[in-house]
């Protein structure tokens, strides 16, 4: 799920197209996709998990207060329980004793969920790289979406990380990607199924997506 998973993150984010705001004028009706509505709502109401472990937590707190004001991005509701969160900002040094706890808390978060590694320690161990008790990067324990460099990063850097995460969230799909023009065989037994295995001998030809990312987002969005 990390940025380095080779999905062409930049290319995807470049294709995200918001409807023109003028469409919000009369007659108060817009036509758009389910994907857009969900990703728009999700990316603008991220609930971060209060996971401050070291001095990065001070910058994270500072981000929440009036001077920097993370509320501008709709991400100000820091929750103390993982069950109400979808973003874990790992702000600080993770040690070997904390690692299993961090993993359990991550698993208690409900899907979809994201992780930001804030600062040098959470990214790679930072100045404690050679320490006997330091996990060299939180990505050894949980999958990380955005890495923020700095020791500690200023609130502005955290905001840039949050905005990069917003872009990433906006590339997510609620509807599974299907190539344009694909035929979904409709059976009485259940919902639509795609793929060669679902097609009977008399069924029309089905073009199965060759890969989960086979459909280009702009085609899906019409």
């Amino acid at each position: 799920m990390g940025l380095s998973d080779g999905i062409g993150f930049k290319a995807l984010t470049d294709r995200v197209q918001y409807p023109n705001l003028s469409q919000f004028e009369r007659p108060n009706v817009i036509t758009t996709t389910v994907d857009f509505i969900f990703s728009w709502a999700r990316s603008h109401s991220v609930f971060p998990f209060t996971y401050g472990l070291a001095c990065c937590a001070i910058e994270m707190l500072s981000s929440g207060f009036a001077r920097f004001d993370v509320a501008r991005y709709g991400m100000e509701v820091f929750r103390p329980t993982p069950r109400q969160c979808d973003l874990m900002i790992v702000a600080g040094t993770v040690n070997e004793k904390m690692a299993p706890v961090l993993k359990r808390l991550y698993e208690q978060m409900s899907e979809p969920k994201w992780v930001i590694a804030m600062g040098a320690c959470a990214t790679s161990g930072g100045p404690f790289y050679d320490g006997y008790n330091v996990v060299n990067g939180v990505d050894k324990v949980v999958p990380v979406d955005v890495y923020i460099p700095g020791c500690p990063p200023r609130p502005e850097a955290l905001f840039q990380g949050l905005l990069e995460l917003q872009k990433k969230i906006q590339t997510m799909h609620i509807v599974p990607p299907v190539p344009t023009g694909a035929v979904r065989p409709q059976t009485a037994a259940g919902p639509a199924v795609t793929g060669p295995a679902a097609a009977g001998p008399d069924a029309p030809a089905v073009v199965a997506p060759d890969a989960p990312g086979g459909a280009t987002p702009d085609k899906v969005r019409g």
Partner: peptide, 25 residues
């Protein structure tokens, strides 16, 4: 401070770290 299953006492001068202490690496 350390996990209960830690091997060794790390502030000793002759401490040698083992991979058993780092299951995540």
């Amino acid at each position: 401070l350390l996990r209960d299953d830690w091997v060794g006492h790390p502030l000793r001068k002759d401490y040698v770290d083992t991979i058993d202490n780092h299951p995540h690496v």
